[in-house]
Design a protein around this nucleic acid. Sequence first.
DNA 1: CTCACGATTAGA
DNA 2: CTAATCGTGAGA
Length: 205
Amino acid sequence: MVLDKQRLLEERFHKGFYLRGAEEVAKDILGMKLVHETPEGITIGRIVETEAYLGEEDPASHAFEGKRTERTDILYKEGGKAYVYLIYGMYRCFNVVTEEKGMPQSVFIRALEPVGGLDLMKKRRGMEKNELELTNGPGKLSTAMGISLNHSGADLCKSGLLLSSYESKEDLEIVSDERINVDYAEEARNWPLRFYLKNNRYVSE
DNA sequence: CTCACGATTAGA
DNA sequence: CTAATCGTGAGA
C-alpha cells in the first residue's frame, strides 16, 4: 500500500472536530480520507463530495422540526458518530453526525475517490467495475467501503471506521451547489449545501 | 399488524 | 426512462 496505515489511523479526527456546524464540517472534510478497517482488509477513499443537513430547521433533514425516531435518534447525540440508513430497500447512505448533543446536524458523504484497498472495493461492488464507478455515489461508496446498517452509531473517534487528515491537502477548490434529490424539501431544495471538489472525476452524476 | 415510501442505482 | 427491494414509521 502506498499510504502508511499507522499514520492514517493516528491522524484521525477527534471529537472536537465534529462538534461544529454541518456546513463547516462538510467543507472541511473534502479532500480528507474515509477509512474502514475490517477483518477483510482496509479500504480508503478521499472525500470529494458532501452535503450538509442542518437538522430541525432544515426541511430536507430527517430531523426536521425535531422529528425523532429510533432510526434518527443517533442524530441527536454528540457529533463524531456515523448515521447510516437504508434507502430504496437496497442501498445504504453514510452520514457523519456533527454538532453538540441535542443538535441533529449531519454531513452526507456523496462520493469518494478510491485511494486504498481497491481490490476489496471491487470484490464488494462486483468485479469488472470501472475504478471511476467504484465510489462515485452514496450507495456505491457504502458498498465499496463495507458500511452496513450496523455501523449506524459507530464512533468515528474510536472504531475502525474513521476520517483522517493524513496526506490530505487543505487548500482545495470547492464548488457549492444545491443538494441532490431533495425536491420534497420545499424552500430548502435550493439551499447551496452540496459541496464538491472542482473538476474531480469521482463526483457523482 | 399493515403498507407506502425513499438523501439510489443499474440497466433497458 | 423505470424497476428493484426492504427497513422504517405512521396509522389502524
